[in-house]
Design a protein around this nucleic acid. Sequence first.
DNA 1: GAGTTTGAAACT
DNA 2: CAGTTTCAAACTC
Length: 767
Amino acid sequence: MDSPERTQIGTPISNIEESPFSNFVNSLSPIKPTKAINISQTFSSLSFTSPPSVFTSPHVSLQKESRFLRRHQLSGLTKPEFSSNDGDTDGGNEGVTNASQQPENSTSQEVQGSGLSLEPLCDVSKLAIELPTAMKYECGSPDTKKDVPSSSETNCELGTSGLVPFIKEPSRRGSFGAQLNSQEMEENKDGISCDWESLISDATDLFVFDSPNDSESLKELTQRTLDEEKSFFASLLSRFPQDDVNNQRNPYPPGSTNSDDRQETKDQFNQPAEVNVQKLIGLAQDNLPSTSMNDFFTDDLNEKSENEADYNFHRGMRRRCLVFEIPGARRNIEDGVISSSANSSNDEEKIGINNKQLLPLKPGGDSSRCILPGIGLHLNALAVASKGCRVLRHETTPSEGLLIVSPSTALESLVNSSGSTSLEKDMGAAENAVQVAEDSSQPPAYVAGDESAQNSPKKKRRRLENAGEGEECKRCNCKRSKCLKLYCECFAAGVYCVEPCSCQDCFNKPIHEDTVLATRKQIESRNPLAFAPKVIRSSDSIPDRGDELSRTPASARHKRGCNCKKSSCLKKYCECYQAGVGCSISCRCEGCKNAFGRKDGSTILETEIEIEEETQVSKNSSAGKGLDQPGIQNEEQNSESAAPTTPLRIFRSSALLPNSSKGKPPRSSFASAGSSSGFHPSNAPVRSTFLRSQPKMEKQPQAVSGDEMPAVLQNNSSPGSSVKTLSPNSKRVSPPHHDNGQSPGLRSGRKLILQSIPAFPSLTPRR
DNA sequence: GAGTTTGAAACT
DNA sequence: CAGTTTCAAACTC
């Protein structure tokens, strides 16, 4: 979880620090001397911030304990400076140490994540954005969920969208009990606050709220009787246009084909919700102080609506986190409150639980549904960058350049997703995309038991393909690797194997968290970037920029580069092709004919591409696989859009391409991509860029420079230098054969390379 | 559905 | 770092 990624992150960050961007950030950084930082805020931040972040997933449960420590420290510190230290403390576990090592930037992020300096964030739009994203990520983590101050999370999100909501929340917090604590905390940094936190943590553990909203809902529940709640929700529903709700919140459109799981979730929602709520309430009452939970809720519906968006976002986070986190969360739930439903697998159980919890909060059962069933898959999809769905996201992280160094995909994904100014929207879009995919593909899968080999892998694949975009989830068919090696798509994506997988002797399950984590660490120790997104897309991810997204695809390039010899980069064997990106200098392929962009940098004209595609398609079609390209891309896009994925994958986060737009990403993207627009998303707001940048460490510097930070990169040779020598893939990065002599220097920052290299831009089909 | 091909991942 | 082996996906029949 924590460790490998963070550690990795640290190094890259250091590089970044020097960059103008880093300087800028530092200037802005909330971390500054802090001003007593709004206590209330700090409090909230403390409460919800779980530094561990997404990746930590598996350990989450463990982290809980650490949380207390963290919180205390944080509260006590109330100093922004603690950042590095905090990170350490936060890490609690291994991750902590790593976190401490992280470069300033990372620390700042973490701190932000902790929510310590909320105001500063607000001050700096960019920072605010980033922070929120970080916050979100954390929120996504089970731990964060647990944290009472969920409101703070919402705040963060809000902060991204606008300062106003953000400000409001503090008040809420105060109402929440933060008031009590906030002041006291300031005065008695540790004293009461600690108690409060402990209470919260305990309560949270029991309740395990996925989203802050959930926690809120629980709170409300505690105070309100079920009947009242019903009426309340009904009122809420009536107030909120369902459409809006669905769009934003519901990953699964009501109309969408609902998998059995979804239905289950719905059912849970509808009926069980009450029961669950009651249970929860009872627990909450017992455990939670009769705080003014209502206050959170009581806030204007408008705020709620905003929160909803946030909520959606959180959900996305959840999904991402789910992979690793889930286990912990589940445990919490099981232990604390709800006895797992008999049937569902662990994941499913969680989901169900979550849904239940969620239900009360958001009347629309949709949201709940979506989340739960999909979670694992979503994460997978997001995380998965490498393949279909996966790839897109990972790559998308054009912004990688961003601070996030951590290899963990999840973080990256998160960052990416968050990147856009309208994080919520992004999330929503992503979710939607995911949902769609799920709708098409998942239903069958989820229904099935976990690893059940219900379908032969091929069938599954075909389904996915048929579904078109649909593959959100990764499904593996591992037989010997036990799904603990990168051979396993699920594992590589940072996702647990799910039902649809037909793997054998699978250890990539929540049950084996320890094993999975240990294995991950090992792999990461070997290759920090092992779980990083394979493909980087310069711009994208943000739905807002649909235009750009469509444009950018061409710009995207495979980080590592492929090593194809026989496939001419025209088949899925080629990672680049599979990801729907052109080959780059880093590729060592022979006879590259990648329709998305050739290694030599020569971009194929649309006509050429089309021709090739057609030929391929014809071939494929003959084989019945014609869909590959489009399908893949689509899938990828979806996945990307959906979510960055799992802890690791999370990074993959935001999908660049508009989910729906997918069509044939390659071409369209190509065509649409037109000139280098993708690379230099002037359009994209800086924020978005920063946020987006999530790809993992590797990319970060590069991505930043390339996409959004181009100026910086350009200006600073440093970034390139700073850039990792290793290819993200860690694969042997032999200097590009064909490519210009640029080789070594360029490699470090691929994005830079891309920009610098005429070839890629040139790739943009049209000029 | 079985078998082959392919290239990444893992190993030496 | 290079070469080999292992692995699972992609592909073909």
